[in-house]
Write a protein that binds this DNA or RNA. Structure first.
Lengths: 374, 374
DNA sequence: CTGTTAGCGCATTCAA
DNA sequence: TTGAATGCGCTAACAG
């Protein structure tokens, strides 16, 4: 019965003396893990009030050097770990941001997450991660997440029901990353259409005329935009774009696409792929079948993954500032939590076309700093 | 002043009648986001007590269908999002696990994280991620993390001061992943020494006699074990192992190592590398310089990253059940939180040697299911 | 089946 | 510079 508080159901509600926890048992000598040290045990051990303990721990108010030291010692001896939930309840803040991603294969998500975590940490926020792929009830998971965080960032391609996003929003700040801007929800992203157009123009510049877009424009908002840029470039060149080859961009799909090309089901002298994994896989299978890339057919991707530097020919692609995108999202979340207004226009970060050999340019020695264009 | 509670500083502490929040204002008609809906507002709106609201939300106790519906409606209308902190404080746990990783480049960490998140989610736990690379005060970050979670998993190679691990442990369950088992701290990992020995024996089987290990055995516990297996294989073959080439395994290091080989500073007819990124990079630079792999020199790696299937020759390597490792860690954490005893012996998961062409075997068509050995 | 009540551990006025 | 008291929103006995 050391910690004496809130327990006077007997006495009349007059501020009875409540004997300052008299020097009864001088508490256990030293050592040993108090599994449940609380601010009360620390205060008692230091011989101060919990308010004082709180002050030194928060660095708030002014506490004498001597008292501070006593408290710090007690904290140390007791191995005190504050209970975050109690603090959160009192201050009404979780000091945590949520991030919703579909999954983590490939460098894109990881980069994004690293950027997000890094900036969040700088701002004193921890990050709680939610992966949607394979989850049965995503809406439930997101609501659960909302319970523990102050704000949430969602990747556009994460399978989160728009209804959920809207519901959350209004309760907690939400930002959509690389998604289609929704009414009243802030979004950040990397530029797509313009770079796609530049990239396509570059391929056109090699004299290719029969280009096909590989990837599903309706699968994700950024793919949609890339396709739009592709189409724009073709039209500007007086060409009529063929129907895109709509495949999801898992690695395995590349083989199927390659087969269709080899069998003549698809005819093209250049492939503009929705991302590098797809492009890489297709190129590899084509090469295995004896086709020359880019001689017979050019292949370009998007994302500039590591492998794109190692294959031959090097993969021509587009690099996005993915890490910065993550940082930006964390940053905006934090500002919004602290009262900043929702930004009406999406923030879009510039991207960079990386020219290597697969587009038809002379092969470069691989794994060297890429040539920059744009 | 709708929610009437805990406010009778006037009346004597006798259980005064406290007028049941008489049907004063019938509350706002419909619609609109109550920014701060609480269990009280929901209860009031549904015309029940907060206990009932809690019951339907927790699925605990028995509540009549009609009442349940009223509550659910109120929750819906008010767009009620419970405050996790309050619940955590009351039930005294966070329903969250922490995961400490150095960073997220390459597929290893991502896989691990996916496994961890997936299993944690199944168990109803959310995951809070902490990346140590680039953090100034890691100990502080970890303590901060400990504040919000019930248990923590740490990757062995994460730069977490052992002292912190020990401090945390005893307060919250801790498991070390792929690290050196520490006294009194549970650990899980993938098998290293034995597979390394098998792999080395395989290379030896191709007639190579001058093998060198590339990677720093003191850099991470699992590298240490792989090196040990390497040494064991050589000794068993009557060979004296050369000093390992101690480099960190960032991608950039490969070039430097390749240079030393080309310049004759290092002589070897086979390289056993600490991981695939290193092996890949070295092989690539060697090839660029005109060396034949595996003709002139064999190169093998560890991890079986995606690129290892795409390069030629295919990279011979060792696949670890990384995802399963993550799942196992989450699983153990959860069990420990729920009272399970600390496992004295480390749980170690089996690995698999993947034979492709870079070790000296006949080149395989790439990007096909790997041949299994072991 | 439902309501009352007492904390959970902490931050924070308000006094002293 | 310090302490006493109050409440954050929720769960969980305990009554009824």
């Amino acid at each position: 019965m050391a910690t004496a508080r809130k327990q006077n159901p007997d006495a009349t509600s007059t501020p009875a003396v409540s004997g300052h926890s008299a020097p009864s048992a001088p508490s256990a000598p030293s050592a040993a893990h108090h599994p449940g040290a609380t601010i009360y045990s620390v205060a008692e051990r230091a011989g101060v009030s919990i308010a004082t303990v709180s002050r030194v721990l928060q660095g708030a108010g002014t506490v004498s050097a001597k008292t501070t030291q006593k408290v710090l010692d007690a904290v140390d001896e007791l191995d005190y770990v504050p209970l975050g939930a109690a603090r959160s309840l009192a201050v009404r803040h979780h000091e945590a941001h949520g991030l919703v991603l579909p999954e983590l294969t490939g460098p894109y998500y990881s980069e994004l997450l690293m950027g997000f975590e890094s900036r969040a940490a700088e701002l004193g926020q921890s990050v709680t991660l939610l992966l949607t792929d394979g989850k049965a009830d995503i809406a439930r998971a997101v609501r659960q997440l909302a319970t523990h965080v102050d704000a949430i960032a969602v990747l556009g391609s994460a399978a989160m029901p728009p209804a959920v996003a809207k519901a959350l929003h209004g309760k907690k700040p939400v930002v959509i990353i690389a998604g289609s801007p929704q009414e009243g929800i802030e979004s950040v992203g990397a530029e797509n259409a313009h770079s796609a157009q530049k990239l396509t123009e570059h391929v056109l510049g090699h004299g290719r005329r029969s280009l096909v877009f590989v990837g599903d424009p309706d699968g994700a908002p950024d793919i949609h935009d890339r396709h739009a840029g592709f189409v724009a470039a073709l039209r500007a060149a007086g060409l009529e774009p063929a129907e895109p080859v709509r495949v999801p961009f898992r690695e395995g799909e590349g083989e199927a696409v390659a087969e269709r090309i080899l069998s003549g089901d698809i005819t093209a002298d250049a492939l503009v792929c929705a991302n590098d994994e797809l492009a890489l896989s297709i190129m590899s299978h084509l090469q295995d079948a004896g086709r020359d890339v880019p001689g017979d057919i050019a292949v370009v991707g998007w994302d500039d993954v590591m492998t794109s530097r190692y294959v031959r020919p090097g993969m021509t692609t587009v690099r996005q500032p993915v890490r910065e995108l993550g940082e930006l999202a964390a940053e905006r979340l934090h500002q919004r939590v602290h009262g900043a207004e929702l930004l009406a226009a999406p923030r879009v970060l510039p991207t960079q076309v990386i020219i290597r050999g697969s587009c038809g340019c002379a092969a470069q020695p691989r794994a060297t700093p890429p040539t920059r264009a744009t």
